[in-house]
Amino acid sequence: MSRSVLRFLFFVFIPFFAGIAIYIYLRGLDHSVSTENAYVKADHVTISNYVESSVVEVLVREYQTVDAGQVLLRLDQSMQILNVKKKQSNLVEIKATLTSLQANYREKEAEVELYRERVAYADQELKRLVSLSRTHNIAQSAVDASVHEKNRSELALTIAKEQLASIKAKLDGEPGQAFSSYADYRQAKAELDHAVYLLNKTVIKAPLSGVVANLPSLGDFLDEGEAIATIFSNSGFWVEANYTEKAISGIRVGQKALVTFDLYPGKEWKGSVVGLSPATKSEFSLFPAQNTDGRWIKVAQRVSVLISLDDDDRYNIFPLKTGLSATSTIILSE
Rank of each mutant, 00 (worst) to 15 (best):
L157R: 09
L157P: 06
T158V: 11
A160R: 01
A160I: 01
A160M: 00
A160P: 03
K161F: 12
Q163I: 00
L164D: 07
A165P: 04
A165M: 10
A165W: 07
S166K: 00
S166V: 03
S166N: 08
I167T: 01
A169T: 11
K170I: 11
L171R: 01
D172C: 05
D172H: 08
E174K: 14
E174R: 10
G176M: 09
G176K: 12
Q177T: 13
F179A: 15
F179E: 10
S180D: 10
Y182W: 11
A183T: 09
A183M: 12
D184C: 15
Y185G: 08
R186I: 05
Q187C: 12
A188D: 00
A188V: 02
A190N: 03
E191Q: 10
L192C: 15
L192S: 12
L192N: 14
D193N: 14
D193T: 13
D193L: 07
H194Q: 15
H194S: 13
A195L: 01
A195N: 00
Y197L: 14
Y197T: 13
L199H: 09
T202F: 01
V203T: 11
K205W: 05
P207W: 01
P207H: 02
S209I: 03
G210E: 06
V211S: 06
V212M: 08
V212E: 02
V212W: 01
A213K: 10
N214D: 12
L215R: 02
L215E: 02
L215F: 02
S217I: 05
S217N: 08
L218K: 11
L218G: 05
G219S: 00
D223R: 13
I228H: 01
A229N: 12
T230W: 06
I231F: 02
I231G: 00
I231A: 03
F232W: 08
S233M: 14
N234W: 04
N234D: 09
N234L: 13
S235R: 13
F237T: 01
F237H: 08
F237I: 06
V239Q: 08
V239R: 08
E240T: 15
A241C: 09
A241Q: 05
A241V: 12
A241K: 09
N242S: 15
N242F: 10
N242R: 14
Y243G: 00
T244P: 12
E245Q: 02
K246G: 14
I248F: 08
I248P: 04
I248T: 07
G250R: 00
G250C: 00
G250V: 04
V253Y: 13
Q255C: 09
K256M: 13
K256P: 14
F261R: 09
F261H: 04
L263C: 05
Y264H: 01
Y264Q: 02
Y264D: 02
Y264L: 03
Y264V: 00
P265N: 10
P265R: 03
P265K: 06
G266D: 02
K267S: 02
E268Q: 10
E268Y: 06
K270A: 14
G271C: 10
G271F: 03
G271T: 02
V273L: 00
L276D: 06
S277D: 11
S277P: 03
S277E: 05
P278V: 07
A279E: 06
A279K: 10
T280L: 10
S282D: 13
E283D: 15
E283N: 12
E283K: 14
F284S: 14
L286P: 10
F287W: 15
F287Y: 12
P288K: 05
P288G: 04
T292E: 09
D293C: 03
D293N: 06
D293R: 05
